[in-house]
């Protein structure tokens, strides 16, 4: 059992309504997407440290090796840069690798291959080669994960042309976005959040896709726009529910994809509300918060009734200790408080 299982098990989520469809766990949804992709396309293969071990990458790869064989689902040496390059090279030659990491921190070891090679080959060889690969990793948080096991690195990658980055917030999206990522002809980073993994949700059986590059309203309200992705949506929805009790109605936009950003949905909502709160699981500086804030300044300025508020991590590495973590990570109360400040200003 992973060492943070206790923490993740202790999280409480709203139960989905079974009358709306089949309810499965987040992990099951990811597992189904991988199994469907492996089953339908012989070009797909899954690699990563521990994908075939008993914990099976939080359970997401459980049973895949026995079903599809050790040539298509396999463990790797601890050679992140080489394995990222191997994935790119295989993708450039007709395969569709899904390279899984249990933390994005390990992807940093492979930035040379991801940023300087995989993301650029299609451009550099004038479109002769495509690089259809998925880099999957689950953002950690809490239980002592600390500075080197809890980094959300999507902000660092927003400025890399050629990459796509998706960040699901529900089991439905986890399956549909992963299938879209695997079928995409570009390198796609899919960053999960460890805290979403015990969430259940309504997930159709069989194949479906959630489009990359399109956001979705999780909630409609005319007073303020809350934008984010991944676990930030969980916090944003909790805050919006609290605020509704006080008569403040929020639009909550789940970007689903953070690169390329669905600018239209953000600007549309901002046009209606005039107030923008950007929430992210990562650092505020130079990342998604900054990018959305800049979008509002550049293209939504006439609609802004108040300054944009960023809610993300301070310019500080993640602490490992429990008490310090409480000061570090934003929660629903902080989002709600920021919204109150905006609406009443």
């Amino acid at each position: 059992m992973p060492w943070d299982e206790g923490l993740v098990n202790s999280l409480v989520y709203d139960k989905p309504d079974p009358s709306e469809g089949r309810v499965v766990s987040y992990v099951q949804a990811v597992n189904e997407a991988l199994a469907l992709a492996l089953d339908s396309d012989p070009e797909v293969f899954v690699l990563g440290q521990g994908v075939d071990d008993p914990t099976a990458m939080f359970g997401t790869t459980k049973g895949l090796q026995s079903k599809f064989g050790s040539h298509r689902v396999f463990d790797t040496p601890l050679s992140e840069e080489a394995m990222m390059g191997v994935s790119a090279g295989a993708a450039m030659n007709g395969m569709r690798p899904v390279y899984m990491h249990n933390r994005p921190d390990f992807v940093l070891l492979a930035f040379n291959q991801l940023v300087t090679h995989a993301a650029k080959f299609h451009f550099m060889d004038n479109g002769q080669t495509t690089v259809p690969m998925v880099v999957w990793a689950a953002i950690g948080r809490g239980w002592g994960s600390g500075a080197q096991h809890s980094q959300a690195i999507h902000g660092m990658l927003l400025g890399v042309p050629g990459l796509k980055i998706v960040m699901p917030s529900t089991p439905y999206d986890a399956k549909g976005l992963l299938l879209s990522a695997i079928l995409d002809n570009n390198p796609v980073c899919l960053f999960e959040h460890r805290w979403l993994m015990k969430k259940d949700g309504v997930v159709p059986e069989g194949f479906y896709r959630v489009p990359i590059g399109k956001g979705i309203y999780r909630r409609r309200g005319g007073d303020v726009t809350i934008v984010g992705a991944s676990h930030a949506i969980e916090l944003g929805m909790q805050a919006a529910t609290q605020l509704a009790g006080e008569g403040i109605e929020a639009d909550v936009i789940d970007l689903r994809t953070v690169k390329p950003i669905d600018e239209q949905i953000v600007l549309e909502s901002l046009h209606n509300t005039g107030r923008l709160v950007v929430v992210d699981t990562a650092w505020m500086k130079g990342g998604l918060c900054a990018e959305i804030g800049c979008l509002a300044a550049e293209k939504g300025f006439p609609d802004l009734k108040a300054p944009v508020v960023r809610i993300g991590l301070p310019d500080v590495p993640a602490p490992a200790g429990f008490t310090l973590e409480q000061f570090y990570y934003p929660d629903a109360a902080r989002i709600a408080s920021a919204v109150r400040g905006l609406v009443r200003s």
Binding site: F45, H71, R72, E81, A82, M83, M84, G85, V86, S87, A88, G89, A90, A91, M92, N93, G94, M95, N112, Q113, T116, H117, F121, D125, Q128, T129
Partner: peptide, 28 residues
């Protein structure tokens, strides 16, 4: 690519794992 000159890198060593990946694809 028409003659199998498949890829290069200006980062020393950068092309090596990509070539290994190409060989893995050939094997698979």
């Amino acid at each position: 690519k028409a003659v199998g000159m498949a890829g290069t890198s200006a980062i020393v060593g950068g092309v090596v794992p990509i070539a290994v990946g190409a060989a893995l694809a050939i094997q698979m």
